[in-house]
Amino acid sequence: MKKIAAYFIGLTVLFQLFSGCGSTPQAKEEIADIYIDESFKPLFETSIPTFESQIQSGRVIPHYVSELEAIEAFKNNQTKTICITREFTPEETKYLAGKNVEFTTDHIGTDALALIVNPACPDSAFTLDELKAIFTGKDSLWKSSGKKINIVFDQSNSSNFYYIYNLIEKQNLSPNISAVKSNEEVIELVRKNSNVLGIIGANWINDTRDSTLLKFKDGIKVCDIAYNKYSEYFQPYPAYIYNDVYPMTRKFYLINKGSRVSLYSQFVRFMTGQRGQMIIYKSNLIPSTMVAREIEIVQEK
């Protein structure tokens, strides 16, 4: 009996040894930290879960920051992929080349800046020259009430801020301009105050509960903008952005330095591919590889 017992114990030990030799350690899940201009948070809150559902493993962690913070994170190697509204400047490209950093830049879509006011505010149509006067402080009062125009944008060093700064050709900004912490905070501030002119990304203004009916969010009025006093006024609807009749449009990009097989590059290929472009399209932005769709426009009364 002792020999039989010893025989079974020996088999058990031998089995455990072979089992241990044949086992494969579980691969560590790849994580991609991507820094995204906060203007595009609604878009990526949809696209990232969709992408993750298409891959076998891996996780994308979004960091919603200002455009400048995204660029600095890229330069400091905190991330390999960023989403911003411009390409790198020659100076930035030279700096990265000095660090032997190779990167790709993909135009993935076009959006716009939107100006919003409270529904109680009757002043909601502006030409670009009128806006320049407001943003530089040359015109600081609402025409209808004579009260001070309080201008609010999402955060310092954001793409929205730089768009306005470049629009006024880097002149001094109005003392009536202030920043909060997000596009969402701008919307809430406008909902509560009739003297606020809010500056946000167009990705934030749409009520997308019904993708066949384009309707803006409740509690805000989206302003009509014209190139000049002789031009027609338009709101940032997709077709008007696509046809460039809405004056305040901009492209947005994914800049990537991840290896071709990395999760970062997989995500970029997803966003530039059919599925990602369709998500941009359904977010009422303009995909880089598709045309704008025809939809019913509901004008607020």
Rank of each mutant, 00 (worst) to 15 (best):
121 C>K: 15
64 Y>W: 11
262 S>Q: 01
8 F>L: 12
77 N>K: 14
92 E>R: 10
132 K>D: 10
159 S>Y: 07
200 I>N: 07
217 K>L: 12
221 K>F: 00
198 G>Q: 05
127 T>A: 02
35 Y>L: 12
136 T>H: 11
264 Y>E: 08
30 E>V: 01
224 D>G: 09
208 T>K: 12
57 S>N: 10
90 P>K: 07
229 K>E: 13
239 A>H: 08
88 F>T: 07
177 I>D: 06
81 T>I: 05
3 K>M: 14
36 I>R: 01
142 W>R: 02
220 I>H: 00
164 I>W: 06
238 P>W: 11
64 Y>D: 12
59 R>Q: 15
207 D>M: 05
28 K>E: 10
45 E>R: 12
11 L>C: 15
151 I>N: 09
76 N>I: 15
10 G>I: 15
219 G>A: 01
201 G>C: 14
254 L>S: 01
167 L>E: 00
223 C>G: 06
121 C>D: 09
268 V>S: 07
126 F>I: 00
66 S>N: 10
55 I>V: 08
137 G>I: 05
127 T>W: 04
77 N>R: 12
53 S>V: 03
263 L>G: 00
157 N>R: 13
37 D>K: 01
24 T>V: 03
131 L>C: 04
82 I>G: 05
162 Y>R: 14
169 E>K: 15
214 L>R: 13
245 V>Y: 09
37 D>F: 08
4 I>Y: 10
280 I>D: 11
23 S>C: 07
288 S>D: 08
53 S>I: 02
137 G>E: 04
148 K>L: 11
205 I>K: 02
42 P>H: 11
